[in-house]
């Protein structure tokens, strides 16, 4: 198999995924510094215009430029997803390591709590938390991170359970290495692969959850654009101005497709049987 950048296999799917995510990141970066129009500027003379040379993706019911709003929304959606995944992964790994390595009562308590959290659908849990925390960007990140941490905990914990029985972890103890060193040097690096795969998948789910929360009106409060609240706002105009729903929806769908394709490539790459150096 030929290899390209980062040693990812150059399969067509991985390339397409990389391309989609590259465009997404570019758009998110662009959306933070420049948009063709001010995404919040209201222009009643240009209400509900179809896509054309002036407004590439048309305008919404307040005459705001959809393309500008989609760009600005990309940066909000991507930053929320990134921070959520990072928070859930780091917290999940630490808790999972502690539970798997210390076992006993620590493990029982952690397992009971994660089981209880996993019993709720993630979105329902986030809804409840948002009601308490209030709907803003940081509340959403916290609520979604809390909802997604348990699955990381479970994956890490079960990996640590089998890793601590392996010869190289025991050999490290026999060498006289401390428990913390053994965890950092031998246990943690061997958990990275499954967690990375989980995290790529999680990025997609979080993006979807954020959109769903915004759609339900519990996301980032208007007028700030996210793909989810753009989609939600488009509903009354579905028949007159279908582009209002189509473009944010397309953004979400293409991003999810890209994430999934890239996630598959990462999984293949991290599988030791596929690894050649």
């Amino acid at each position: 198999m030929t290899r390209t950048w980062f040693g990812l296999p150059a399969s067509p799917g991985a390339l397409l995924g990389g391309l989609l995510i590259g465009v997404l990141l570019l758009a998110a970066g662009l959306g933070m510094v420049w948009t063709p129009y001010d995404p919040l500027a209201i222009d009643f003379r240009a209400r509900l215009q179809p896509p054309g040379p002036e407004h590439w993706l048309g305008t919404d019911e307040f005459g705001r430029d959809v393309f500008s709003r989609a760009l600005a929304g990309a940066s909000t959606s991507v930053s929320i997803s990134l921070f959520t995944v990072a928070a859930a992964t780091v917290a999940g790994m630490l808790i999972g390591l502690a539970a798997g390595y210390l076992r006993g009562w620590t493990d029982r308590i952690v397992v009971s709590i994660t089981d209880a959290l996993l019993a709720f659908p993630g979105i329902l849990l986030a809804l409840g938390l948002l009601a308490v925390l209030g709907a803003n960007k940081y509340g959403i990140i916290l609520a979604l991170a809390l909802a997604y941490t348990p699955s990381v905990v479970r994956v890490v914990r079960s990996n640590v359970f089998s890793l601590r029985e392996t010869g190289f972890v025991e050999a490290s103890r026999v060498m006289g290495n401390g428990e913390l060193f053994t965890m950092a040097r031998h246990v943690l690096p061997n958990c990275i692969a499954p967690v990375t795969v989980l995290a790529t998948g999680m990025f997609g789910w979080v993006l979807l959850s954020e959109s769903a929360l915004s759609f339900l009106g519990l996301g980032v409060p208007p007028p700030a654009p996210t793909w989810g609240n753009m989609l939600a706002a488009s509903r009354p105009y579905m028949s007159q101005a279908p582009w209002l729903g189509i473009y944010p929806g397309l953004c979400i769908a293409l991003t999810l497709l890209g994430i999934n394709l890239l996630g598959d490539a990462v999984r293949d790459r991290l599988d030791p049987r596929m690894r050649r150096i």
Binding site: G167, F168, E170, V174, M175, N177, R185, P189, N190
Partner: peptide, 30 residues
């Protein structure tokens, strides 16, 4: 702790798959 070592039965699980041989052998010298 330094004077007693062990060689395990299964050579497939007794070496950390993410470390190079040199690092594996050097680790006890730390």
């Amino acid at each position: 702790r330094h004077g007693c070592q062990i060689v395990f039965q299964d050579p497939y699980s007794s070496l950390d798959p993410r470390m190079q041989v040199g690092a594996i052998v050097a680790e006890p010298l730390r």
